[in-house]
Amino acid sequence: MKKLLPSANNHKPPNSKFKTIVDRYSAKREKLISMLHDIQEEFRYLPEESLRSLSNELSVPLIKIYGIATFYKSFRLKRPGRHMLTVCLGTACHVRGGPRIADEISRVLDVKPGETTKDGEYSLETVNCLGCCAIGPVLVMDGKIFGQITTKSVKNILKQTDKDRNKKEGVAG
């Protein structure tokens, strides 16, 4: 079994970081979305605690903030895995076999789109067009774009991260 990430559960945002973000926008309620973006950048998702604190700070009802956070697709309410896999299912990638790639990843990692593997390593997510249709089907992993993916190359890419991780952990430990 792979190790759980430290503090994978019960994650509470350190108050100082949260405070700087709110102060950066001088706690103005019309800057709510910018704050949410910054919080997500800091913690990689929107922790429940931070939304609650935000509601207190700005005196905006919590449901309003929750509504906004669920309305936009770019906001994440669940803690993502260490590696983010984004498969494009836009029209161009779709006809070139994007769905097959997504299925393959689901099968190999045992994770459904929009979910995270049990060990907290990988999150799979699907999007509609990344704007680089010419190299489709497209897979983005941790911000790096891979074009012309096949079911075979998926495995290689995943292996790559495994190696990376082993290397890093070897050095650290």
Partner: peptide, 19 residues
């Protein structure tokens, strides 16, 4: 009170409480 509101969007839109 503002206890309930709309969440999600499109065909997933529904009325509920936070979280």
């Amino acid at each position: 009170a503002g206890a309930i509101g709309f969440v999600n969007r499109g065909h997933k839109r529904k009325i509920t409480t936070p979280f």
